[in-house]
Amino acid sequence: MSTNTSLNHAMKQAAWEFKLNVRNGEQILLLVVIPVIVYFALTRTSFIGGASWDAHSALSVAVTIATLAAGFTSLAIATAFERRSGTLLYMGTTPVTRLELVLGKSFSTFLLAMVSSFALCVVALITGWQPTSKTVLFVGVLLVGTLSVSGYAFLMAGTMRAEAVLALANGIFVVVLMFGGVIFQYNGIGATIASLFPPRALLILSDWALGGTSAFDSPVWISAIVLIAWGLLGNFLASKFFKWR
């Protein structure tokens, strides 16, 4: 199988998965509606931090949530139910190889994160956010951010029952929102520890790329390394333990 054919299959699979995902109302809720609500909650109220947030910082938080929702929660649940229905096994009988299937899913997830982030950027532009020259790098941040957690989504989906994945992936998502250093910020050692995990590392990188003014105590390059390291570990574990049936 040539690289061209493989790439062709992976892209077709990505387009197919993307088409199915964007039709799903729950996905839209998770990837667009919730992050937009968070964005407005941060910029229009003083519930969190005692004052309303500026558009840059709120946008960074919202896109981080959207990326985690696409790259982890949504991917884990969808893959787990596809495994249960036998879809993954079935695709093993088609010309799409397992690697192409995983690449297709990963790329589709990245596209979902792009679309939801684009929608958030449009909302933020209307409400006062101003992009900078660094904003083009945000595409790269999204890619690294998606891959940093997608391996763990595959790991859960490929080793646990679909119902357990549904509960756990949503549970982890809520815990990350509450305690991951994304919405509620830490200081000192708490912030340092949180920065070693994908949610806050992604927030730091997003904030940098979107031109935010938040002062994080962890350098951007460390956050990039943190995301890449978690991504490599997650995808390695998934490749070792993922079961197709």
Partner: peptide, 15 residues
């Protein structure tokens, strides 16, 4: 894979 076809028992792909 391009020369074979398959029905798997109890499987409903992409419901």
């Amino acid at each position: 894979a391009v020369q074979t076809g398959s029905v798997l028992q109890g499987v409903t792909p992409y419901p």
